[in-house]
């Protein structure tokens, strides 16, 4: 499946899950900051992507989860170097460049998940 075809299907997924118009779903739009996704919407999006592309997604595979459980990953509400390294290794579909030297507040991590991240994820899974 081409990247453009994946993008179009992701647009439909986000249209259904978040009630946004397809023209709002641009490649660089952040799911939380731009499209208004809340934590429960992530579960909805996971289920819809599984159904649309016919593959299973393990818990924590698409979106980061339970980061605060590990003090090596998060300290004083911010992602540590070890935490960032772990995320970069596990979540190759997400671009972490903006927080390398910027704000690593845990509340900002969700903003890094963009429409492009989802397209990358599906592309990697389908290439699998």
């Amino acid at each position: 499946m081409s990247r453009d075809a994946i993008f179009e299907k992701i647009q439909e997924v986000l249209d259904d899950a978040l009630g946004v118009d397809e023209d709002e779903v641009t490649p660089n739009a952040s799911l939380t900051a731009d499209l208004g996704a809340e934590s429960i919407d992530f579960l909805d999006i996971v289920f819809r992507i599984e159904k649309t592309f016919d593959f299973k997604i393990s818990q924590g595979e698409l979106f980061p989860e339970n980061l605060t459980d590990n003090p090596d990953w998060v300290a004083d509400g911010k992602l540590t170097d070890a935490g960032l390294a772990m995320l970069k290794e596990r979540m190759t579909h997400v671009d972490f460049a903006s927080i390398e030297d910027g704000d690593r507040s845990i509340s900002k991590i969700g903003d890094l998940i963009t429409v492009n991240s989802l397209v990358n994820f599906v592309e990697i899974k389908l290439a699998g």
């Binding site: 934590s39 429960i40 579960l43 909805d44 289920f47 979106f63 989860e65 339970n66 605060t68 459980d69």
Partner: peptide
């Protein structure tokens, strides 16, 4: 509908 198993919520 969407249901959460809240003991396994993403926020922990």
């Amino acid at each position: 509908l969407l249901f959460s198993h809240i003991d396994n919520n993403m926020a922990g």
